[in-house]
Nucleic acid binder design. Structure first.
Lengths: 212, 212, 212, 212
DNA sequence: AATGAATGAGAGTTCATTCAT
DNA sequence: GATGAATGAACTCTCATTCAT
């Protein structure tokens, strides 16, 4: 007759789950996909868990077998998207001859990705309000990669030396804002046109050419 | 048989409010300020009307004398901020000798504004989800002004000619993203440092200078 | 445009309410009474808040204007009952000529009270599981009074000297258990019969009298 | 026309379980022990079946092979404890020379048992709310034994004659309440001290001795 | 103009129980 | 005999909004 209590009664957050069978794994995936569609469509706050489970065709209680809360699926979604985007960008830029070419290819790939996954784009944006820590980590990881890339390119003389930290964030800001043209503002011009316009500016800035 | 009455029963949207007395005006202002503080602090969805009216030191019913819904205060807030920011930017740039100088002064003023009003910054960002139309209008108005400014400057030969529409949005993206450095990412470097770094890039882009 | 956040976002328990009008006071009372009836009838865990508000004839949300949780009404109920019982016992014993007479009168009054308020009796008992701190405080206050009463009586020579702390709890145990005869076990004998039987034991214990 | 079948469709209560193999017996035991630990620690209502099966290291479905419901394990637990306690008391009192000595030894053994098995003690108490019939049967069996023991002792002249039914319940009440001192109120005095204090009162009651 | 009590629909979440494997 | 994923009813609690005072 052992007497020690099994747990201190209030272990703050119980602990995360984890599927053990193939069926469970499939259900988890179905919920995650459904969450992406629903949250992408109506936003985090108007996406009820009931709506997500209905979309996933499971009972509402099933949700809590795999995620502890709406916030938790949301974070999983953001992480998922980070991975996908990173993969797409790496694929697009790894063959580039130099940093400037990579810059152009990266912007082009980013806009294509965003147009193909508008809901994920909105999800990332909303993360600032729903999961700030994840939002920061997401952008920080991009910025770190960018900064190192710029520093290396500057060292090789491929680009003008400068404040790499600031330039990294500027380039991120440019991409994100141009992506928003398509997802939020209904831009209709072809991607290539924006890419050309943006790349010219990235290459030379605003200063008029040396000679009139 | 009578002709159909113009609007027999359900006059489309109920009716907007509007203060009549000085006391009423003060109450409205108190609610608006309180809404800014509360929404800025906890976000739109976690900002209950009760919390706003408590912060404003009025009864909860009073809210509905001045605003028809939570969305309505929110929109009023975004509009308010648009006005303030525009005023600050105009003041900062109107003495500039040319477009490039105005660009630098504008960025500096924008960052200063954002640092002084971080909650308003977050509110604008959240507007994308709460009041998309207002969000779009807000940025569109800035973009329009920018584009015209760039076009005129290019015509005067002050800046290199280019895709002004795209360049306008890029410059907006740069400002917004650098602003976020301070409000979201806890940037500690002095504003002037980022302004210098950014301005160099805006002037010359990434291409290495012709000669060493 | 003040910027300080109104509250640290997570002030652990928001804070207790408190009615401001006579109407509010009456509603609070109605909920408390309804809670007593419902919890007394079906027990704490099977008493849903919906059932309580239905019994009180208010909307379910109204409950939360006055109490933060089911636990909170429950505690209010236990406190209420403590007051009532104390009042009844004081009234019954204050005219007693000595401690032994007071003891008998107190037991009689306690049993009468318990029979008249069986639901409150069950509520106290359940408090051990629902609100242990309140349960302990409740009994401790009775025990303290008892112990002092016994000590004073012993000093006056009215009762045999002894371990007053232990005797206090024994007397409480006797009362409570005999009360349970009526409330839980369906005892049908008249109160006076049990009082006489118990009092004889309290007076002389089990030891056989010195002489026949 | 056929006569009405004895029980056509809904055979009253489904069917009780019962282990067939040694492995099954071990599993049943594991669940019962786990239930004791979990319910003892957090109470009946907060003890989820999932928590019990997790503690027992079996799958949740396994529970229903051996018990039809949470109430059923609970009742099994109470019965278990009744047996254990009875055994302990019998062992402690069977060598006693007379009833008064048995009384003292029984109280001492009861307190020792309670201190050793606080969770079982709490379980019995909660049975009043979870399984009232079992609770009543449990105490009734003790009371019956007590009453008979007292009656026999009185007939032998070992104790003062009196209302044995009432005295039996009083003695139970005393034990239970002193047990609660340790389990609920954190009593720190040694058992022997309380036993002595209580026994003096049980022997002589409160009346002052005939002569100083 | 202002109050604040009251509403009630709807949200997130839990968990005893079932059943295909 | 054992598993553990799935269920869905039921519960607690929140909050935008209304309205009598």
């Amino acid at each position: 007759m052992p007497e020690p209590a099994p747990s201190p009664k209030a272990a703050s957050p119980p602990k995360p789950p984890s599927p053990k069978t193939a069926r469970g794994e499939a259900t988890r995936r179905a919920i995650l996909d459904a969450a992406q569609r629903v949250i992408g469509a109506v936003g985090f706050n108007d996406a009820s868990i009931t709506a997500i489970t209905r979309e996933a065709r499971v009972a509402s209680g099933t949700f809590y077998i795999y995620f502890r809360s709406k916030e938790e699926v949301f974070e999983a979604l953001v992480l998922d998207m980070g991975r996908s985007l990173r993969r797409a960008l790496t694929a697009a830029t790894e063959g580039a001859p130099d940093r400037l070419a990579a810059e152009k290819a990266g912007l082009r790939a980013f806009l294509a990705f965003v147009i193909a996954h508008p809901s994920l784009y909105r999800i990332i944006r909303e993360a600032l309000f729903v999961a700030p820590a994840v939002y920061r980590a997401y952008f920080q990881s991009f910025a770190d990669g960018y900064r190192e890339g710029l520093a290396a390119a500057a060292a090789r003389g491929e680009i003008r030396p400068g404040d790499d930290e600031t330039r990294a964030w500027m380039l991120i800001g440019i991409s994100v804002t141009l992506g928003e043209r398509y997802v939020v503002f209904g831009e209709t011009r072809p991607v290539e046109e924006l890419v050309e316009g943006a790349h010219a500016m990235i290459l030379h800035g605003l200063t008029p050419g040396e000679r009139p």
